[in-house]
């Protein structure tokens, strides 16, 4: 059994290559932690808006303790999502347009328009994109 644990010359070489490769990777620019870094004040206001209009009635949203509705998808880790509703590039502008008036932003969307002003929608988007900041 002990023999199996000891590294043979060939395996040691593989390990060495791997370490070298890792070191090389480290020299490259690391991918950004967060796609979009939100202004904390905007994001804070966005959370207030989310609670006031009740986004949680359909969505699980980090930072909203209750409700965690199941009718729509969870928004945990929104910054890492692919396209919004499978179609729109996940940018702050698109997200703000979508949360305010989904049927207009993406015809056929199951999400209805919500009672948000343009500024409020922008702050909601800032909150969702800011979930992994900091």
């Amino acid at each position: 059994m002990m023999g199996n644990l000891a590294l043979g010359p060939r395996r040691a070489m593989t390990l060495g290559t791997a370490i070298a490769l890792c070191a090389g990777l480290d020299a490259c620019k690391a991918p950004p932690e967060s796609r979009y870094v939100s202004d904390p004040a905007d994001a804070r206001h966005g959370l207030e808006v989310i609670e006031r209009v009740g986004c949680g009635a359909c969505h699980e949203i980090p930072g909203v303790g209750w409700p965690e509705g199941n009718a729509g998808p969870s928004l945990r880790g929104f910054d890492d999502f692919g396209p919004i509703a499978g179609q729109l590039p996940n940018t702050p502008t698109n997200l703000a347009a979508f949360v305010r008036n989904a049927p207009l932003a993406k015809p056929g969307s199951p999400m209805p328009a919500m009672p948000l002003s343009v500024a409020e929608a922008r702050d909601v988007a800032a909150y969702l994109h800011g979930l992994d900041d900091g």
Binding site: G54, C58, P112, A113, M114
Partner: peptide, 8 residues
């Protein structure tokens, strides 16, 4: 609102 009504 329409969203909370649908969710409910």
């Amino acid at each position: 609102n329409r969203g909370t009504m649908m969710g409910w």
